[in-house]
Design a binder for these strands. Sequence first.
DNA 1: GTCAATATTTAGATAAGTCTAAAAATATAT
DNA 2: ATATATTTTTAGACTTATCTAAATATTGAC
Lengths: 219, 219
Amino acid sequence: MLSQSEENYLKVIFSLQSEKEIKSVSTNDIAQKVQTKASSVTDMLKKLSDKKLVIYKKYRGVKLTQSGEAFAKKVIRSHRLWECFMVDKLGFAWNEVHETAEQLEHVKSDELIDKLDDFLANPKFDPHGDPIPDKEGNMEVKHTLMLSNLDIGDSGILEGLKNSSDNFLQYLNNKNLVLGDIIEVKNMESFDNSMLVRTGNNEFTISHEVAQNLLVKMI
Amino acid sequence: MLSQSEENYLKVIFSLQSEKEIKSVSTNDIAQKVQTKASSVTDMLKKLSDKKLVIYKKYRGVKLTQSGEAFAKKVIRSHRLWECFMVDKLGFAWNEVHETAEQLEHVKSDELIDKLDDFLANPKFDPHGDPIPDKEGNMEVKHTLMLSNLDIGDSGILEGLKNSSDNFLQYLNNKNLVLGDIIEVKNMESFDNSMLVRTGNNEFTISHEVAQNLLVKMI
DNA sequence: GTCAATATTTAGATAAGTCTAAAAATATAT
DNA sequence: ATATATTTTTAGACTTATCTAAATATTGAC
């Protein structure tokens, strides 16, 4: 049985691994994401390696084994299902659920998660547009672009976020942007790459940084 | 912020305290319920005492302070609401939810629990008939008797269990007994105090021990 | 009221996960 | 290619919650 700490490391390694198509993940990157010191990461990597959850070579970073990846996906599945539950059933806003899901994800009961999944009608994406692995670990791959890649005149459906920090979510709340919205690029400032966009009757300007964090499907 | 371990101790002290109208709870009784050694209990009692959650005098046992009792009730509230959720919404049987609720109860989010409470329509009792404290810590007091106290010819509604062990719950499942059932005492064996009872069209014999663990309201 | 039995506490040890500071390996710049 | 900067690891310490074994206090039997 894995500890909460071990589960957190696996989850973080998994997400770093899939962020870029990189073969192995560095100690420092993990430390930053887990919010700890590099020396603590080294200790944990040894432990995970002993348990055959990661392949670890000193100074060369780590990558997940099949078993490690399976555990990571289970934690992510649990996290995202709990987020769905909180938003869809309990009425939380999408920016209020992350921290609590960080706790709920560690509750050990496969049957609980599978029944929760059914209760929620087997959602494929969480409230931030991130895909939810099924019982076998399969998850849908989204073919989305960053809004910043669209040209003037293009439109896209907002399907996900590259960044789900509370800050950013609150920004989107203020702009009344939600998943599913159709965003049209009306203009683009070549100086700073900021964009004038329209959703429904609202027109407003967004920075390049914001546009890079909005994932859309072109239409 | 309390650790899971601290919360467990508070919960156990609360339940031992209310089991009997005893002023203070002994180290050994706590050890047995928490499934640990007396020496570990002593260590923890000192810590809880430092945090003003219990009044502790060496060799004289402990009792909860107001603050300690409030925390204990919060944990119990959380535990019982999660049990309701699992049984009423996810379709678990009443004997399958205790262990998982032991984990869920430690998730720290008042808002989560309050919203869960509303989502469940503010239940007053959990699936085993135990009362659920509300946000302020108030809980209904049940005026029930042990079935073993009824006389031949009496009837009662099954409203709760004194013991909710998996063993006992499975026994009740086998007998098809559920909360709300009307139980009539048809006969009583003076030798071993076993009872012949009837619910609906079923007649069967139960031991004195079983009768002592069934809480009924006389009708 | 004394003494044996029981309950409780103390002292010292262990394991998990973390930290700091120093050492070692790797990467980078010129 | 060598020196410097950066990254990673090691060594040793700390905290929390636990344990065992020994010491101490309380209870109960006579």
